[in-house]
Design a protein around this nucleic acid. Structure first.
Lengths: 184, 184
DNA sequence: TACTTTATTGACTAACTAATAAGTTATTTA
DNA sequence: TAAATAACTTATTAGTTAGTCAATAAAGTA
C-alpha cells in the first residue's frame, strides 16, 4: 500500500505552496499524517528527495490536464488553464513555478532541473495552444505566441501572489482581461 | 552613527530577495557585517522588526524613484519602471512584492500591513502614469489603466522569478513586448 | 566630574531542524 | 514454515535558530 507515500507528497506540495519550501518541516507533515518524522524520512530520505517527488507530481498532473484539455478547442483550453490558476488562488496556494523560484537558491540542482523541465513544458503547451488557436482564428494577439505565453504565465503566477496582498479581485480582473483580449 | 543599523537593512533586504525570508538568519547578516548576532538584535529586536524596516526602505526608495521620474514624460516613466525591474533581474534578486507574498503566511500582521500599503502605492503610481500617458496620447492600451497596471506589475514580478528558471532572455522579451505594445 | 545613552560583546538557552540507527511488527514470498 | 521485505517507532544526534541578559567601553550631556 503506497497510501502514506502518496499522501506525503500531497501534504508536502500543499505546505510548499502555502508556506514555502523553507517554512515547512518534516514535523509538519508527520503531525498531520499522525506518523513519526522518521516515517517521512523512510519514504523520502532527504528534503530534496521530497521536493523532487512534488515536482514529479506536478508534471504528471499537468500532463493529465493537457490530455483532458486536448478534446476542446484552443479558446476553451486557454480558459481551462486560467481557471486552473483561479482554483489555485481560491485555495490559498501559489503556482509551483513561483514557489520554487523564490526559494531557488536553497534548491538542490536535481530539484532545479526538474522545475526547469516542468516550466518549459508548461510554456511550450501555452505557446502551441496559442499558435493553433490563432491559425483557427479562435484567438488574437499581436506579439509572437511564445512571448504571449510568457506574459500569460507571469500574469497568472504573480497574480496568485498579488491576490494574497491586495485581495482576490485583482486576480479575477487580470484573468478576465486576458480572456477578453485574446478570445475573438 | 547609524552606519551599522542601515547596513543591516541593506543586507537583510538582499538576503530576503535573494534567498527568501525564511532562508536567511541573523547569523548570515552578522557574519557579513563582522559583528555578533546580539548586535543585530540590538538594532532590530525581532525578525519581523527587521522585515518592517526592509519594507520601509523600499517605500522610501520607491518614493525617491517616483520623484526622480516625475520630470520625464509618461512613456519614459514606464520605461524607467521596467528598467528598474531589469536591474533587479540582473542582480539575481526578486521583486519585494513577490518575495513577501511567497512567505506571506509566516509574516507578522505588522509586516503584512506595510507590504500591502507599499504594493498599493506602486500599483496606484503605475495606474496614474498609464492614465496620464493615455490622455497625452503617449501610451495606448485597451483595458482600464488599473488592470493594465496589474498586468504589467505581475509580468515584472514573476518575470524576475521565471528568469531564474528559464534564463534572462524570457524577462527581456516580456519587457520589450510590453513597451512595444503600450508606447505609441 | 558624574551620569546617561549608544553600540557592542560574550555567554547562554530553549526550541526546532534534518537526518540516522537500531529495533518492532506485519505482510509477502520462496 | 522460514526468510525477506515493507512500513513503521523509539531514541538520539549534531547543527541551527531567534532571542535574552549581563557586562563593557566609548561618547555625549548635565
Amino acid at each position: 500500500m503506497a497510501r502514506t507515500k502518496d499522501t506525503i507528497v500531497l501534504l508536502g506540495d500543499e505546505l510548499i505552496r502555502k508556506n514555502g519550501y523553507n517554512a515547512f518541516s518534516y514535523a509538519d507533515i508527520s503531525k498531520q499524517l499522525n506518523v513519526k518524522n522518521a516515517a517521512i524520512h523512510y519514504h523520502y530520505p532527504t528534503k530534496p528527495d521530497l521536493a523532487e517527488a512534488v515536482v514529479d507530481w506536478h508534471t504528471d498532473s499537468f500532463n493529465r490536464f493537457a490530455e483532458k484539455a486536448s478534446s476542446k478547442n484552443e479558446a476553451d483550453q486557454i480558459k481551462m488553464f486560467l481557471n486552473f490558476y483561479a482554483s489555485i488562488q481560491v485555495s490559498g496556494k501559489l503556482c509551483v513555478i513561483g514557489s520554487f523560484a523564490t526559494d531557488w537558491n536553497s534548491m538542490e540542482d536535481s530539484v532545479q532541473e526538474k522545475v526547469t523541465e516542468f516550466t518549459e513544458n508548461v510554456l511550450s503547451w501555452i505557446t502551441t495552444t496559442l499558435d493553433n488557436g490563432k491559425q483557427k482564428n479562435l484567438l488574437t494577439f499581436s506579439s509572437p505566441a511564445k512571448i504571449e505565453a510568457l506574459k500569460i504565465l507571469t500574469n497568472m503566477c504573480a497574480g496568485t501572489q498579488l491576490a494574497r496582498i491586495t485581495g482576490s479581485n485583482d486576480f479575477t480582473d487580470i484573468k478576465n482581461s486576458i480572456l477578453e483580449q485574446i478570445i475573438t
